[in-house]
Simulated scan of single mutants.
Amino acid sequence: MSRNGQPTPRTRAGPTTAVPAATALFIGDFPLPRGHGLPTHHHRSHQLAWPTRGLLRIHTTLGSWLLPPSLALWIPAGVAHAPASEGDAVMSSLYLQPARCPATASWPQPTVLGVDLLLRALLDHLLRDDLAPEARARAEAVLFDALRPVPVTDVSAPEPKDARARGVARALAANPADDRTLSAWGTQVGASARTLARLFTAETGLAFGQWRKRLRMRASMSLLAQGLPLDAVAHRVGYASASSFAAAFHHVVGLTPRQYFPLEGRD
């Protein structure tokens, strides 16, 4: 374990701050077994974090994201964050010195970036420990050009504090396909539909319908990451068809399911 409580990473590359031309401090692998997470922490460097395997959840005070291997999160220096696995995952991280990052590729807020073949190839190239400082600097300049933001919104669905609304939230988390109305839920938890609607808005910042839709999208992501067909995922999270689910996913997340999880062989 490191001094800040994080597991010691398997470092794959050795560029350090002692190399004047280098921007990357190091690239490390953090194995995250099922249910494992790291404590909330921050860095003096920028961090680019993505899962090379599995599904990675990263929570910050500015939002929460679920990332497949096709996406990464840019975490600015100083932003507190807590990564965790959704199933067995491996988180890879690239740490970058803020002073050496160009303004055009240094975002002040957490930003989702695409991880395509070019970016993967550049990262593999930077793993080499025999690159001259000048060659590393050129490769890192291209790396910044390859960082491409994608229009993904956070999918956090905060849990209400009130016991009645929290009971509804936990029941829906256990069964996202439950389509009962607030009136029906109110009968179960002892509150009117109006009271529950008010509590969800006040305590989560989202209207109940918006909150439930986000919860369903979060639940769908772990199923999509397993490679389940869209029809099966749709039914498990409360949608009558793959097309209605895909439309809702695109509306909430910003990408279609196939864009978010570009897996071959999906129905």
Rank of each mutant, 00 (worst) to 15 (best):
G5N: 06
Q6G: 06
P39A: 05
T40I: 04
H41K: 02
H42F: 13
H43S: 02
L48E: 00
W50F: 14
T52I: 11
L55A: 04
L62S: 10
L62G: 03
G63A: 01
S64G: 13
W65G: 12
L66S: 07
P68S: 05
A72R: 00
A72G: 14
W74E: 02
V79Y: 12
E86C: 15
L96M: 02
Q97R: 12
P98W: 00
P102W: 00
G114Y: 02
D116S: 02
L119P: 02
D130P: 05
A135H: 01
A141V: 04
F144I: 00
A146T: 00
R148G: 04
P158M: 06
A163T: 05
G167Y: 07
V168I: 15
A174K: 11
T181L: 08
L182E: 10
L182F: 06
S183K: 09
G190P: 07
A191V: 05
T201C: 10
R214G: 05
M221A: 15
M221H: 08
L223Q: 14
G227M: 10
L230Q: 01
A234T: 02
R236M: 06
G238C: 06
Y239I: 08
A240H: 12
A242F: 08
S243E: 15
S244Q: 14
H251D: 15
T256W: 12
